[in-house]
Amino acid sequence: MAQVLGILRTPSATAGAVRELRGAGFEKLEVYSPCPSHEIEHALDRGPSRVRIYTLVGCLTGVTLAYLMQIWMAYDWPLVIGGKPFASIPAYTIIGFEMNILFGGVLTVAGLLIHGFFLTSRRDHSAYQPSFSGDDFGCVVDCHDDQVGRVREILGEAGCAEVRVVSA
């Protein structure tokens, strides 16, 4: 296996390169970019991130837990407070709402960590260079050694400022 790196200057050019590569059947792609780009995301077409499921699960868990906790604790040692019912649902809505947000938010970040960091950290990032956090976009293609030429060609046509083989 070989890795070819093409360095591009704009998100549109990068997106173009990605489309070309995918058109040519190269699906093992990695793009480094200094900022998020809808174009590149569209070109890669990997569907919506799975983070949204984490948020949903978090929110529902939070709100359920909050109500269960409050109602159970109210009846665990029932004390009359201000003449209000033991389980005062209107008053419990506040903490229900807050825990809904809290769990949703925390699980969202957990999703980000899992899908953005832990699950992707296995990948070899030897192609990364500091300018990718500056103004360069990197497009890395995993291919068989015999396809390197073809990849170089596509990347070159897509307007790469520089194309090199990272590992062979």
Binding site: I81, G82, G83, K84
Partner: peptide, 14 residues
């Protein structure tokens, strides 16, 4: 009692 319901730690109750 209005005082009871606002106490966060149940230090006052009926």
């Amino acid at each position: 009692a209005p005082c009871e319901s606002v106490c966060p730690v149940l230090a006052t109750y009926h």
